[in-house]
């Protein structure tokens, strides 16, 4: 006899359980989205540092290096990397601040947690648009 994950024998579980395989109807709660975004932006930032530290090292080494970096930053690839990095950093900081606030015992309820999650996603999108417009 197969065992249900909860430990209940499969025989005793109602056979007709709702099956939901329509992916567009399955949605994660906001708090789950902020969690995965925090991970994605964190990993992305780690690799973005290759460019950030590389560009910084080059820009402080000599006037020629500074000019080369400036030229790169004016190209589309440089702009995409810069905007992407700043966007990821701003999200990661917002998520981190939310974590610090939750460490102090607030926004830990279902409703307040989801509201703060929605708020930081909203602020992040606005910040990304502002940075995108300013740097492009």
């Amino acid at each position: 006899m197969t065992k249900h994950p909860t430990g209940i024998r499969a025989k005793n579980v109602k056979k007709q359980r709702p099956v939901n395989l329509q992916l567009n109807t399955i949605s994660f709660p906001p708090a789950a989205i902020t969690s995965i975004l925090h991970r994605i932006t964190g990993v992305a930032l780690f690799f973005a540092l290759l460019f950030v530290i590389g560009a910084w090292a080059c820009s402080v080494s000599s006037p020629e290096g500074f000019e080369a970096v400036q030229q790169q930053m004016n190209g589309w690839l440089g702009k995409v990397i810069a905007i992407g990095t700043i966007s990821a950093l701003s999200y990661h900081i917002l998520g981190g601040v939310r974590h610090l606030i939750m460490d102090m015992g607030v926004w830990e309820e279902l409703e307040s947690g989801n509201n703060s999650a929605k708020a930081i996603i909203g602020i992040w999108i606005v910040l990304t648009v502002v940075v995108g417009v300013l740097l492009w």
Binding site: F46, L49, L50, I53, W56, A57, V60, S61
Partner: peptide
């Protein structure tokens, strides 16, 4: 990955040194 993280620190140190 930790090696890359160390490289970041080492590069930063020597660039700052110079």
């Amino acid at each position: 990955l930790n090696l890359i993280a160390f490289v970041y620190v080492a590069v930063g140190l020597f660039v700052l040194w110079g």
